[in-house]
Design a protein around this nucleic acid. Structure first.
Lengths: 197, 197
DNA sequence: TGCACTTCCTAAGGGTCCTAGTTTAAAACT
DNA sequence: AGTTTTAAACTAGGACCCTTAGGAAGTGCA
């Protein structure tokens, strides 16, 4: 009964690979076990259950994506930083569709586990940092961060769902979207009357 | 063996209701059957399989959402139309989280079925119509449509996933995002050098 | 070596998806 | 009305999956 040397980490990685290959919703305990050369019941020593595994994949993905973005934006500012940030985001989603999908799921992650993972928090911090050059102040800053994240996520999600059927290439629309966001950040509109409602 | 009067339509609606109540990924043939007072095998006379059911729910949702948006934007133009459009979109997602999630799934819909459903196509047409007042020409128009749809979808998706943990209310950020998009559309930036790459 | 601890196993219950074949209610026809 | 036809819903069953419980075997330490 040679040991397979499993660990929560390895199980998570196997699940993430599987997710990228066949889609997150086809990541099953049995398939992950098979991929690791192990019986499915053995996984339960490392991972609480399937939902927990999904949560771990999501956390792994958030960490990886954050890291890519951090590397891409390091030493850049203004428009350069914006484009580098957005491209790194989109490229991660393209390269790891299953992992990326996992990050979309409503948070059902073990709190204790989430505390150890700096991914999601750092991702938001990076976004704030990227916007530094545009000279926005709170609460506009938070609003801008949310707008950017929404657009980035929405674009890659629609792209993945086949939502861009028109013949114009998504890549061109993406470039123009970043242009637009850049100008928008440079001319962030003042608050209008009645917006506080 | 009193007949239950099932039909593909009724099965789909039951599935959609279930999706809104417990989440799309917990919509199962057995549960839908139970809700309809029928054995699960009976559903296969009306729906090809679970995937097909999911696709039908997605189509139903797309139709409903499009209808809401059409009603909300009727007779409006410019900024009014933009806000009505966006609010209708977001409100539908809030009111029907499960159905809305279904629309995000990669297209795996029976082509024959999709042909009958005007929802997705009309949704895009509506977006083009809404932008008429801003005086954009192709290909900027398509790019703007994609940017708007990305932002709307991304916002509600992040909101649903619990991505807006900051204390500022999502509602306020939403209003400001619409402000920003409106100004952006009024000052759509010209194409830059090298964008064609 | 003996012991505790962990890893991985087998066994088993319960749930799900889906197919095949059967029964029977409703619709269509004479 | 009575008969035929259609199809709605059923029972039965195989395959897969999730998860728990308890046993066997490897690992580390006294």
């Amino acid at each position: 009964m040679a040991r397979a040397g499993l660990t929560a980490e390895r199980v998570t990685v196997a699940g993430a690979e599987l997710a990228d290959e066949v889609g997150l919703d086809r990541v099953t305990m049995s398939q992950v076990a098979r991929r690791l050369g192990v019986k499915d019941a053995s996984l339960y020593a490392h991972v609480r259950n399937l939902e927990d595994l999904r949560g771990r994949i999501a956390l792994l993905a958030a960490d990886e994506k954050t890291l890519r973005i951090a590397e891409a934006t390091a030493g850049r500012a203004g428009r350069d930083a914006l484009v580098a940030f957005a491209d790194a985001w989109r490229e991660y989603a393209h390269a790891h569709p299953g992992r990326y999908t996992a990050t979309q799921a409503p948070i059902r992650i073990d709190p204790e586990l989430a505390a150890n993972a700096a991914g999601p928090r750092r991702a938001v911090e990076l976004t704030y940092g990227m916007l530094r050059g545009y000279g926005l102040a709170e609460p506009d800053l938070t609003d801008a961060v949310r707008l950017l994240r929404s657009t980035f996520h929405g674009f890659v999600a629609l792209e993945a769902a086949g939502g861009f059927a028109h013949e114009r290439s998504p890549q061109q629309s993406w470039i123009r979207a970043l242009d637009a966001l850049h100008t928008l950040l440079e001319h962030w509109p003042p608050s209008r009357e009645g917006d506080s409602a």
